[in-house]
Design a protein around this nucleic acid. Structure first.
Lengths: 366, 366
DNA sequence: ATCCGGTTGGTAAGCGCTTTCCGTAAGGCC
DNA sequence: GGCCTTACGGAAAGCGCTTACCAACCGGAT
């Protein structure tokens, strides 16, 4: 008999109770530290627990009125379109920013004994809302990256379960957490115009509907104009937060023979990465020929040549803050509808034309 | 009355049944497509469901004998030691390889309506095993990155729940999924020695206990020696899979005035990244002065200057394969104890001394 | 010794589902 | 029309846990 293989029998609380010669209530009380059981009861239970390798079933605990201790996280997976060949084939799958956010969420969640339940959706998935709703019922609360749900469904769902959005917009039933887009972009614009003297500047966007990208766009444009420089704008500057998208914008502009501005502020670092790459393919060197900047300050930005000038967001802290906000809603009944904005910092490195810091490319706060 | 705020009442199957004028059994049958209910019954249930916005509770479903539809994933979070200053402060938190694996798992899981439940552990966490065990009881099966559990506990846990390891070793009760370390490193060694004529080569390790790193080390060393070149080895070549670790190894060697080999094969791309960075800080240029290679072929490797020569693993496929193996164990009772090895490919780019591909840095399969 | 507040353990209800087991209605055949 | 087969709906059990609720028991005061 090959019972060694199929011995997937997980001990239940009844097994423990029988083994310890007590009732299941006592076992539960010992495990949850309720009502201070007598030392010898506690000892016998603990021994039975270790002996049997008992771990309480999460589903049963959750069902019994308590928390699931799970926070659902939804990220948007970019649609795999790779027009520029296989170079970017799965680059699009390297979502550094969301992954870092998730790590921030996870670290914060761990302190409360929560776990992350992750689901990704791609936009053209007709079925995405079903999956998000299913995720909702496996979780105590939801953290949504980007805009993965249309406002109507968001509202509906937020009546059933606490929701925190990242890079979304706050609603009466929903809390939002984000970085200070406007402040960061204004500082960047001032630096590029006032310190470097650039006269023509463009903003390379993220997703067209992204509130973050929209905010960055308008703050940058306004500040550039206010500083007396000219803001190059138009639909051809629409990227998608990915390196491939940034590269594509450059390729198109060059193919059309359009004149490039003196500086390009990208919606995020990944886009900037693609832009720098595409420019170098055409013999244009950053920052010698043109300045390029990013947003986020993802870790790899610190290993690129040239070192990327960017606006730093406290990425992990964004995630941690989102979790704490959600936790407060779940456990303390904290009301939703807040808008939490974390500060951003201009990081001047090389790609804007600042001189390389000799010896070590250490970040310089602006 | 502010009931608008606290109306967190999630409808249950009873509400639906009442609304539709049927029994809860019928509702369940409609939702799970069992026993082909009569059209009008189905219609009334469906209407009640949409009207109330009902979504079945995951915990209750799971408890009722079915699956949780959750796969637990444990990653090892590097201990935050940043000896080289704040440059690498949270670079260590950018775990590109694990994150890509997870994406692969997630995509595969989604096809089966599973979700990823993620937990990270850092090695010095005394409490890590409790957390992994808790995760186990919230999941139908576990996928473990690295070696996050000692063999004894692994065995114990694997008797209760199916486990697939990545980059571990397969055991009688556990299936392992990994890339072909030996094959990839042999091809790399041959290329470096035979095609480039390097005479002294070193391997910069990952974690000392990582089976992957050990396999890469010995395959590389053996092939280098077999090809007649000399293999530089020793404890000073111990990295930790992170850029910071790679940089540190170089810093120490240079500080000691030790002669560098002609080529350094790193345990993974992240290490190589740190190595290249550290070398350039000391005026050593890759590949002019020294050759450096990676392993994994993470997407950013394609944007580095110089383009990184590396051994490509099908990263996302590793994740997807791990999930499918686990799923087979969970649902079809597939026995454990398999060892699944996916092929690797040598990718010759620039950092080994190969000429840059003109125009486009496209991967060249070896 | 009797009574009484304070503890501690056991019993049982119930969380929201799935599923088995019946009962009944509907349809096919003689 | 009566009988058998088949199809579907409903009642109820039960998944593994938490937590009232209640019984028993402790020591101290009377």
């Amino acid at each position: 008999m090959d019972e060694a293989e199929t011995a997937q029998a997980q001990p239940t609380i009844y097994d423990v109770a029988r083994e310890a010669g007590v009732s299941i209530a006592s076992v539960s009380r010992v495990l949850n530290e309720r009502r201070n059981p007598r030392p010898d009861t506690k000892a016998r239970v603990m021994q039975a627990v270790t002996e049997l390798g008992f771990i309480p079933d999460g589903a049963a605990r959750a069902l019994s009125g308590r928390l699931k201790e799970v926070v659902g996280v939804v990220i948007r997976r970019p649609t795999p379109t790779s027009p520029s060949g296989d170079l970017y084939a799965d680059e699009e799958e390297s979502l550094q920013f969301p992954d870092l956010i998730n790590r921030g969420i996870e670290v914060a969640a761990q302190r409360r004994d929560f776990n992350l339940l992750v689901s990704s959706v791609d936009v053209d998935d007709h079925d995405y809302s079903r999956r998000i709703f299913a995720l909702a019922r496996k979780s105590d609360g939801l953290i949504l990256h980007d805009q993965v749900l249309d406002p109507e469904q968001l509202t509906r769902l937020s009546r059933q379960i606490p929701i925190v959005t990242l890079a979304g917009v706050q609603t009466p039933t929903t809390t939002n957490v984000g970085g200070d887009n406007a402040g960061g972009m204004r500082a960047l614009a001032r630096h590029l115009v006032a310190d470097h003297g650039f006269r023509t500047l463009a903003y390379l966007g993220g997703h067209a509907t992204s509130p973050d990208s929209i905010a960055r766009h308008s703050a940058f444009g306004a500040e550039v104009t206010a500083a007396g420089a000219s803001f190059v704008d138009g639909p051809q500057w629409q990227g998608n937060y990915c390196a491939a998208g940034g590269a594509q914008v450059i390729e198109r502009l060059l193919a059309e023979g359009a004149p490039l501005p003196e500086a390009i502020a990208c919606a995020n670092d990944q886009s900037a990465l693609g832009v720098v790459h595409a420019l170098s393919q055409h013999g244009l060197e950053v920052p010698r020929d043109i300045a390029v900047t990013g947003f986020d300050d993802i870790p790899v930005a610190r290993h690129l040549r040239p070192l990327l000038t960017t606006v730093r967001q406290p990425i992990q802290q964004l995630g941690a803050t989102a979790f704490e906000a959600l936790y407060a809603m779940v456990c303390d009944g904290e009301p939703a509808g807040q808008d939490i904005i974390l500060p951003t910092t201009l990081i001047r490195r090389e790609s804007c034309g600042c001189l390389p810091t000799p010896g070590l490319a250490r970040a310089v706060a602006g």
